[in-house]
Simulated scan of single mutants.
Amino acid sequence: MSALLWIAVVSLAVWLWLLLGQGLFWRTDVRLPPRRDPAGWPRVCVVVPARDEAAVLPLSLPSLLAQDYPGPAEIFLVDDGSTDGTGSLAGELARRHGGLPLTVVSPGEPPAGWTGKLWAVRHGIALAREREPEYLLLTDADIAHAPDGLRRLVSAARTGGFDLVSLMARLRVESPWERLVVPAFVYFFAQLYPFRWIGRRGGRTAAAAGGCVLLRAEAAARARVPDAIRHSVIDDVALARAVKGTGGRIWLGLADTVDSVRPYPRLRDLWRMVSRSAYAQLRHNPLLLLGTVAGLALVYLVPPTAAAWGLVAGGSAAAAVGALAWLVMAGTYAPMLRYYRQPLWLAPLLPFTALLYLLMTVDSAVQHYRGRGAAWKGRTYARPGALPEEG
């Protein structure tokens, strides 16, 4: 057997294992259960960190103000040093639309050792605790919620006995690049953190989607959130690990009624979104980076390469094995494309999208070693090991 055939066989074996042994990550049926109203509706405080969000706030904040929630609820929007009038716009939207009470505050610049978002979340949670809520809804400023969204989250948490319930918001897919890259982003996330494993009792897998997290206030205090994760760039996964690590039960699923309104129309926008935190996901470890690059190449690039090269060079066995691995790959991607209402002919293009993600990950490492780190909206964050310890 040729070397290419051996490599293609390994790639096919990996895909068969992923198909059956990785928590059925490719299925998209992990959703909130039908709503069952609890005996009583607890107090909820909504915390929205916002930095330079004036462009999307008119599309998202009114949906929070209009929540049809039977219990007491109010919103704290924490303006994280915006320069575009985010805070004043939020107040204007509240006066125009009415609905849930809104408080707009600004904590000032974060101290060393804190990301701006988590510093804003800390300030919002501190204010919320004065109201003694049972739950906190942590949601990003670019997330729009259906009118019964808060009801459904609280119902799922109460009836399921969860300390954390998170929804992976449906991201925008309108531009050609969004259609090519965005569904794959959620697909890769689910492959790393299979949703079925996250909700298992005693399981080690922990993750959340930072755009929409309903968190029991008592669980947040027990896990010292957000102080315990103050320097985390990938704060949603760190939050879930902190809650689960202190005995909390967590759940993550795909959203039906929670949408991100932030546009990523150009490849450059998507590239920045991924590359700003990709190397942080690998804990800034060069060996993990090399392993990731090799793994992506083996799993996603070998199948089409073997299929094409086998046909050109007359290696029918390598071509057949590569094509079969490619078919399994495309088949596992099809449910995510259906979830995003995208055409299934995009499924065979997943190797090209994976190549883009590989290059984004390498670029993330390059930017890190150039001293730019994880940059977002004018702030650059060092790796955790370079930060001062909490006194």
Rank of each mutant, 00 (worst) to 15 (best):
M273G: 06
A184K: 12
R152A: 13
N285T: 13
E132R: 14
L171A: 11
H368Q: 15
E53H: 07
Y339E: 09
P70R: 09
R204S: 14
W177L: 13
V56L: 06
A347G: 09
E109W: 11
L350S: 03
K244V: 05
L164P: 13
Y135V: 03
L4T: 02
A240Y: 10
A50R: 05
L93R: 00
G149M: 00
W119M: 04
S260G: 15
R36A: 07
Y69S: 02
P351Y: 11
Y340F: 12
Y193G: 04
Y279V: 11
L65Q: 00
A221H: 09
P58Y: 01
R222C: 02
P388Q: 12
P42T: 04
E174V: 14
P62H: 01
F162M: 06
A317I: 04
L59Y: 15
Y339N: 08
W26G: 03
V46F: 05
L252N: 09
A307P: 01
S60T: 14
V321I: 05
L150A: 05
L289Q: 14
V258M: 02
G202H: 12
L150G: 08
V321S: 01
S166T: 12
R196D: 02
C45I: 09
P348D: 10
F25T: 06
D269Q: 05
I7P: 04
R43H: 13
L100I: 07
G291Q: 08
P42R: 02
E53P: 01
P34A: 02
W15M: 04
L12S: 07
L270E: 07
Y193Q: 08
P111W: 10
T28V: 05
Y381K: 08
I250P: 12
A325H: 07
L298D: 02
D269E: 11
L192Q: 15
R379E: 14
L59V: 05
G91E: 15
E109R: 14
S166E: 04
A308L: 14
R383G: 10
W17S: 10
R383I: 10
L287H: 11
P194H: 05
P110H: 12
G124Y: 01
V274S: 11
R131N: 08
A319F: 01
G161M: 10
G124R: 03
A306E: 00
H284W: 15
I250L: 09
P226W: 02
V181H: 08
A50D: 09
L12I: 05
I125A: 03
L77V: 01
L20P: 00
W271L: 13
A308S: 06
V181F: 14
P176C: 03
T257V: 06
A66K: 10
R152T: 04
L171E: 15
D80A: 15
L93P: 00
G161W: 12
W177T: 14
A128W: 02
A217L: 07
L282C: 10
V274M: 10
V182N: 08
L252Y: 10
G91V: 02
I7D: 03
E130G: 09
S11E: 01
R196I: 01
L61Y: 01
R262T: 09
G71K: 02
V154Y: 01
S277W: 15
G314L: 11
A320N: 00
P388N: 07
A141Q: 04
V105Y: 04
